[in-house]
């Protein structure tokens, strides 16, 4: 095949996907911001996305906080700066690792589940059934998931921030000889509201990405069980990539503050 044609074709394909995704997101947001709201579906998604993700997010945060503390202690030791470890751990967790790791865990757990559920509904004509029952699938399926993820991921991130810092604290106190109350005081005095706030704003955007990727790939799944599997994989991979891209953009934006 002509290489120029191949590049052109794949570029057009990417543009087509970007356009379709933008339209899908627009319809989803419009449905989420206007009545009627399917409250039962929304509450169910709050549980599915939020409550049931707590263990995985908490475990990830505690181990990451502990490992981060060890690494920063080792690195700081090269400059005789071990004592600033609590502050760096707090900054790293709240601004970066808390939101990104919580979002990545949700990409694996929630994007995949959403894509599989909606994809299976597409394969078994459930989405067609919704339409014939005078129910907009965007309002019934997409909007509750988008809303729930946007609202819940900041809360999960807040939990991840606290547990992550606690992970760092426990390693510092148990094996690095830090005084527990001084560690907490140093962390508290150092942290600014914006450190936590910027992480929570990031988390909200990541929540939107996680739910959007799951819904988009599930809704457009085709080809039966294989198509549902493909949609699940695409949802997780694209959510993870977009989370990293959005993280860089938002960090650039926030670094000017």
């Amino acid at each position: 095949m002509n290489p120029v044609r191949a590049v052109g074709r794949s570029s057009l394909g990417m543009l087509q996907t970007a356009g379709a995704l933008t339209l899908f997101a627009g319809r989803g947001v419009a449905a989420a911001l206007s009545p009627p709201v399917f409250l039962g579906q929304f509450l169910r998604q709050l549980g599915q996305i939020g409550y049931f993700s707590l263990p995985v997010v908490g475990l990830t945060a505690v181990f990451t906080g502990a490992a981060l503390a060890l690494n920063i202690y080792t690195g700081g030791g090269r400059f005789n700066a071990e004592q600033i470890m609590p502050q760096i751990v707090a900054l790293g967790i709240t601004r970066e690792l808390g939101p990104v790791l919580a979002a990545l865990m949700l990409a694996g757990r929630v994007s995949a589940a959403i894509a599989a559920e909606i994809g299976a509904m597409r394969a078994t004509e459930h989405i067609d059934a919704l339409q014939t029952l005078s129910t907009d699938p965007f309002r019934y399926l997409v909007a509750p998931r988008l809303l729930a993820a946007v609202l819940v991921l900041p809360l999960l991130t807040l939990v991840a921030d606290i547990i992550g810092i606690a992970g760092g604290w426990s390693v510092a106190v148990a094996s690095l000889g830090f005084n527990g109350s001084i560690y907490v005081k140093n962390t508290w005095d150092f942290l600014q509201a914006w450190d936590v706030g910027s992480g929570l704003i990031k988390a909200s955007v990541f929540g939107f990405i996680v739910a959007l990727m799951g819904c988009y790939h599930g809704y457009n799944a085709s080809g039966g069980a294989r198509g549902v599997g493909r949609a699940t994989t695409h949802a997780v991979v694209s959510a993870a990539i977009l989370i990293f891209a959005a993280d860089y953009l938002l960090t650039s934006l926030f670094s000017h503050k």
Binding site: T124, E125, H126, D128, A129, Q131, T132, L133, S134, T135, D136
Partner: peptide
């Protein structure tokens, strides 16, 4: 408009399509 029209329709799907 489509949703209003759909209220005139009923459909039995091949696999029943129950939720």
């Amino acid at each position: 408009g489509r949703r209003r029209l759909s209220s005139q329709f009923g459909m039995l799907f091949q696999g029943a399509a129950l939720f």
